[in-house]
């Protein structure tokens, strides 16, 4: 658990960060809370010659809720999400999900930016952000650009972010209707065996819109368009839920690991999604 030697940088502004990234390319990585990256370095699974700490870079923190839009700075911690009254009112699914990430000590350090940018299929925020149809802001040498969460993830640890770019914020429209984040895990601190993020809008007795995303059931988060569509226009009865679950099954590709074989994970995925839909519908 001793990392290889590395140079440590703590630039004061984004310009300094970008300059370092341009200089060192693949050998450099930015670090937010460090709770994914540092363990990887200690295990020598990641050798980062140039580590750029974002702690001192201004403008990456803060939670804003304005005009029906929510923006989270990349350095917002899971704890700050849990602690924010404004966020609880505007998008309560975030608090529900954040409370299921790791443990309090990790949540004081772990950030939204790090969680979504790392590309670890085990992280909870990527799927959640896909459910919310969030947009990620990336800043690079040529300025900034926006990428939809639903098209950001290519494969495990492979994202749309270029080596010289930094993910600076996450934003999304305040969700409406009912919500649920349902996660099965082996113990506190564990990644999901299966997790489901669900937002549902109700119009009378009928589902007006739905968004469903799954976590740790493929090498990327899975926003299931078909599963979402299966609920719309229904009364979210057992048949509709079964249809949504079946559609979701077609979109995930779980693999066997210490959490269990793929067949079990599919069953767990069905169970957490069923529960999430029921809970979200009750709240809609």
């Amino acid at each position: 658990m001793i990392p290889a030697a590395f140079d440590y940088y703590r630039p004061k502004d984004m310009g300094g960060v970008i300059a370092l990234l341009q200089e060192h390319g693949d050998d450099a990585r930015v670090m937010a809370g460090g709770h994914s990256l540092i363990p990887m370095m200690k295990l020598r699974m990641a050798e980062i010659a140039h580590l750029i700490d974002l702690q001192d870079v201004a403008g990456l923190d803060g939670i804003t809720v304005e005009g029906g839009r929510i923006t989270l700075g990349a350095m917002v911690t899971q704890h700050q999400i849990i602690d924010s009254a404004a966020l609880l009112a505007a998008a309560p699914i975030l608090r529900e999900a954040a409370l299921q990430i790791a443990d309090p000590q990790v949540r004081y350090m772990g950030t939204v930016g790090g969680n979504v940018a790392n590309g670890d299929p085990g992280n909870d925020m990527p799927g959640l952000m896909q459910c919310l149809d969030a947009t990620f802001t990336l800043v690079g040498p040529d300025g900034s650009r926006e990428v939809a969460a639903r098209s950001f993830y290519h494969a495990a640890y492979m994202t749309d972010r270029d080596d010289s770019e930094v993910l600076t914020s996450v934003s999304f429209a305040a969700p409406r209707g009912g919500y649920a984040y349902e996660k099965q895990k082996r113990k506190i601190g564990d990644y999901a065996t299966a997790a489901a993020a669900v937002q549902i809008e109700k119009n009378g007795d009928v589902c007006a819109s739905a968004s469903i995303a799954m976590t740790n059931l493929s090498d990327t988060p899975v926003w299931s368009k078909a599963a979402s569509a299966a609920l719309v226009g229904t009364t979210v009865d057992d048949a509709a839920i079964a249809a949504a679950v079946a559609a979701m099954q077609a979109d995930i590709e779980p693999v066997e690991d210490n959490r269990g074989p793929a067949a079990f994970k599919r069953h767990a995925a069905a169970t957490v999604l069923t529960r999430a839909i029921r809970r979200a519908w009750d709240r809609a």
Partner: peptide
């Protein structure tokens, strides 16, 4: 663990 209990049931 979870999957082995699931397997019993299955």
């Amino acid at each position: 663990d979870h999957w082995r209990i699931w397997k019993i049931a299955d």
